[in-house]
Amino acid sequence: MHQVVRERLEDLLAGSLEADSVAELHLAACEECRQQVEAFRSNALLIRSLRYSQEIAPAPGFYARVMDRIEARRSASVWNALLDPAFAWRLAVGSLAALLLIGSFIFMREAQPPEPAVTVIAVQEHPPDLGSDPLRDRDTVLVTLATYRE
């Protein structure tokens, strides 16, 4: 559709353009634009079939019925919320995501190689000379233990 028609399409469909307007003159000469405008016009008429000219009022007491509905919705229990498909779906997705997070955390933890056990090795700078005299050996061991520092 050419720009000149496109810009005035709403006016053309509303029939509010003068016959000698630029858009109307273009339509008279351009078959392609004329066909498209015609197709748009018949669709507009189709939508207008939903028009209902009279304004109808609901039956008396409408406000009270609206308030009843509001009250019913207000007092709906948590169980109703759980039964609501949209909420249940969100809950299920949320739970699944939480499970995946926890599962992957546990898996990652277990997959790590175990850290070597820390062993304290007491290294003596000058190992005592043991084995010659049991009584002296006992004293040496006691002294070693008493003076042991990490």
């Binding site: 209902y52 009279q54 109808i56 009022a57 609901p58």
Partner: peptide, 9 residues
Amino acid sequence: QSKVYSIIY
């Protein structure tokens, strides 16, 4: 209310 009712109708 009448407007809404008429649209729906």
